[in-house]
């Protein structure tokens, strides 16, 4: 390749000849920003500016059409949203419940599976392949797939329950069972992500502390609790951080399984689903921007809390 692009001179001679074009020297001196600027400008244009706009919209009464006139109303939207016990606070509760319960299962199951896969054995490769499959599957398709499996009349889930003598459950169709069922789907799809991250963490540990504890007569549980877990803790927190951000923002499977507004009783309406509905089903841009800014602050807050925990764990 190099010979094709610069056929007349070798790299060695390039620096010896002082007549390197001026633009090339300029580019070389300014490469730091020359390399970084396009991506930075893209990000600024597509993220920073729109986010600032959303912040502005949250202070206006914008609604109806994106082109309609809107008035500045100060913090009125925030007062309205924060005192809304009908839709907003239940959505906050569902977001928190969804994220905390899903994360709990994902981390505990993920750690158990990662420990089983830690030491090499025959067939390990195939288990890893199986683990990868839910992870790369398209979330909307996954939602549709579980809709069929959880169908109260023809679904596989109720059939399997029938074999062990348990009566049919409403699953996604039930007012109280819908949210737990979507949590189950999230656990099915994303536990593999936690497994992969924890496995990477476990594999990077050295064997010596394990061996030392074994020689000292520590039991398997003691070795896990007092040796492995503290060592792998930073990775556990990374897994919680990465998975937690995505779990807070879950949209695809909720919208694919329950549709607009998180179902007719808003059973699975989390903050993200609520904000999406306000924006694109009801065109309440002012209110939706307010919800989004609060949502954004919640995400940043939880991240900050976790990162400081991580720094403690590393000490």
């Amino acid at each position: 390749m190099a010979a094709v692009t610069t056929p007349t001179r070798s790299p060695r001679r390039a620096s010896e000849t002082p007549d390197t074009p001026a633009w090339a020297r300029w580019a070389n001196d300014h490469r730091k920003w020359l390399f970084a600027a396009p991506a930075m400008i893209f990000v600024a244009a597509l993220i920073v500016f729109p986010l600032a706009w959303t912040g502005y919209l949250s202070l206006t009464d914008a609604e109806g059409s994106v082109r309609a006139e809107s008035e500045f109303v100060g913090f009125q939207n925030y007062v309205e949203v924060l005192s809304d016990t009908d839709r907003f606070w239940p959505a906050v509760g569902r977001t928190a419940a969804f994220t905390v319960v899903a994360l709990l299962f994902e981390v505990v199951l993920g750690m158990a599976i990662a420990l089983l896969l830690w030491r090499p054995f025959r067939g390990q490769k195939w288990v890893r392949v199986a683990i990868l499959m839910p992870l790369v599957a398209t979330p909307v398709a996954v939602g549709m797939m579980w809709r069929l499996i959880f169908d109260p009349n023809i679904g596989l889930a109720n059939q399997v329950l029938g074999w062990v003598g348990i009566g049919p459950q409403p699953w996604l169709a039930g007012q109280h069972s819908a949210l737990p069922t979507t949590i189950f789907i999230d656990v099915w799809q994303w536990t593999p992500m936690v497994v992969l991250i924890l496995l990477a963490g476990l594999t990077s540990l050295s064997d010596e502390p394990q061996e030392a504890a074994r020689i000292d007569g520590a039991s398997t549980w003691q070795r896990f609790r007092h040796v492995t877990l503290p060592l792998v803790m930073p990775t556990v927190i990374v897994a919680i951080l990465l998975r937690g951000i995505d779990a807070l923002k879950t949209f695809d499977i909720l919208y694919a399984t329950k549709g607009r507004g998180g179902g007719s009783f808003h059973e699975v309406e989390t903050l993200n689903v609520y904000a999406y509905g306000l924006s694109f089903d009801y065109n309440e841009y002012g209110i939706s921007s307010t919800v989004l800014i609060i949502f954004f602050l919640i995400i940043i807050g939880s991240m900050w809390a976790l990162t400081s925990r991580r720094k403690e764990a590393q000490r």
Binding site: P50, W53, T54, L57, S279, S288, S289, I293, F295
Partner: peptide
């Protein structure tokens, strides 16, 4: 710091950008 700005994209809820983009 610049990297952090780019990585913020992983954190921001996509809906909050969609309204301005759409406009």
């Amino acid at each position: 710091k610049s990297a952090l700005v780019v990585l913020m994209a992983r954190v921001i809820p996509g809906v909050s950008l969609l309204v301005p983009w759409y406009y």
